[in-house]
Amino acid sequence: MSSMKTYAHVQAKTTRWKLDSKAIDQGIAYGLMIAALFVTYLVH
């Protein structure tokens, strides 16, 4: 029974980490888009 609990805990941690890395990637993408808009505004 305890090995099943451990597996569920590890799986929950892995899932949470995947969500965090996805959120980080999305944040970087938004930051790059804002930077591109700002540069475009300055050049224009």
Rank of each mutant, 00 (worst) to 15 (best):
H9P: 07
Y7V: 00
H44C: 11
Y41N: 01
L19R: 06
K22F: 10
M1D: 07
M33T: 11
A35G: 12
T6I: 09
T40C: 04
L42E: 08
H9Q: 08
T14W: 12
L42G: 03
H44F: 15
T14F: 10
D20F: 15
A12K: 12
R16Q: 15
A12T: 15
I24Q: 14
I34C: 12
K22Y: 11
A8M: 15
L42F: 05
V39K: 04
V10I: 05
T14G: 07
S21Q: 12
K13E: 14
I24L: 14
Q11M: 12
A36D: 10
G27W: 03
S3M: 06
M33G: 05
Y7H: 04
K5L: 11
D25Q: 10
L37I: 01
K13P: 14
A23C: 06
S3R: 08
G31R: 00
A23I: 04
V10F: 05
G31K: 02
M1C: 03
K18N: 13
V10R: 07
T15L: 12
A29C: 03
Y41C: 00
L32G: 04
S21D: 08
L37R: 00
T6E: 08
I28W: 06
I28D: 09
M4E: 07
M4P: 00
S2V: 07
G27V: 00
K22V: 03
L42W: 06
G31D: 05
A29Q: 11
V43F: 05
D25S: 14
M1L: 05
K18D: 12
Y30N: 05
H9M: 08
A35E: 14
S3E: 06
V43Q: 07
Q11K: 14
V43I: 11
Y7C: 02
K13F: 05
L19Y: 01
T6P: 06
A23G: 04
L19V: 03
L37Y: 02
I28L: 12
F38E: 00
V39E: 02
V10P: 02
L32D: 10
A12N: 11
T15V: 11
R16T: 15
A23F: 08
K18I: 13
A35V: 07
Y30S: 00
R16L: 15
K18P: 03
L42Q: 05
V39C: 09
S21K: 15
A23M: 11
K18G: 09
D20G: 10
A35Y: 09
L19W: 02
T14I: 13
G27T: 00
L37V: 02
D20W: 13
